[in-house]
Design a protein around this nucleic acid. Structure first.
Lengths: 159, 159
DNA sequence: AAAATTTGCGTAATCACTTACGTAATTGAT
DNA sequence: ATCAATTACGTAAGTGATTACGCAAATTTT
């Protein structure tokens, strides 16, 4: 009995979460293989800062499409690891800007090499997909944004 | 800058989680619309029990492909709601079997009607997908099961 | 220029899982 | 028949996100 195919994405959450965690763990192995002390979960913020050089919490949150508390939590870890630093903005007293530390900058080239390779691996996996996960998710998101269950229901029943 | 398309599923977790939560909320609306006191997160266990009539914790966990503590936690809620009951197995003193309560059985036909409609809606969404999410996820899972990043790496570098 | 609104950040609590660990019952090996 | 291994379940703590709330600074309205 396959619940998923019977009832679609309703029971889908944990499965997707697990998949992403499996892949994360795979990422860890790669960093370890290269002897680099870096965790996949740090990637989004770290990468964002490597592109932007300096950014406030909200800017990062929006860029990564996560909530700002999520950014604060992750950035705390990165700061503890000494990979990023933060300082109050001069122009806006509400803002706290994050940027890569010296240590972070030094690590960057190595990380970039690794990311490049991971990107290749991803491309290989994705290109071999008959149904592209990225596109599929986007399609579902869009379908949902356009019309919720309830709206579909009401339509269906002429309400 | 799109992190996802650049680096694939590595930064994918929260996006998928959010999608599944959005859909869950959509499910809530439907139950509410029908005036039924039922939550989407209860569905997997409840549905499983409606098919199996009686099952131990581990059996459910394996059937749903989640860990047994997850089953225990969710089933506690269902038990509190009076929708399922549990009792020690006669044959095996370690086992605690779960099954639908009278109240649960009574609710079942109504739920089944709702599920049937949800299934239709899902089918509509999924059939309109160019890239099928379910298949896409399965493909990625399989690709991963077959070969991890690290194995791909080593292969790539002839190690 | 005062008042109202918006923005940026921080903290706390929650969520639905997980891993890690422990215990008791059963099964299997010798 | 005993001892070791496995199985079933339970609890505790951790995870990486979320929502809800609050506050102070900046911006906009009037």
């Amino acid at each position: 009995m396959d619940l998923i195919s019977e009832l679609g994405p309703l029971a889908f959450g944990s499965r997707l979460k697990r998949l992403s965690e499996t892949i994360m763990r795979g990422g860890e192995d790669v960093y370890r293989f290269y002897g680099v002390d870096f965790q996949p979960k740090w990637f989004p913020i770290f990468y964002f800062l490597s592109q932007k050089s300096e950014a406030g919490i909200m800017e990062i949150a929006e860029g990564l499409n996560v909530t700002h508390p999520a950014v604060i939590q992750m950035s705390k870890e990165l700061e503890k690891k000494g990979l990023i630093v933060s300082k109050k903005s001069d122009e806006d007293a509400r803002k706290r800007n994050l940027k890569l530390s010296k240590k972070g900058e030094d690590l960057l080239p190595t990380l970039q090499k690794i990311w490049e390779e991971i990107k290749l691996m991803n491309a290989e996996i994705i290109e071999n997909q008959e149904h592209n996960l990225l596109i599929a998710v986007k399609e579902i998101e869009d379908a949902w944004a356009a019309k919720s269950y309830l709206e579909r229901f009401k339509e269906f029943h002429g309400l």
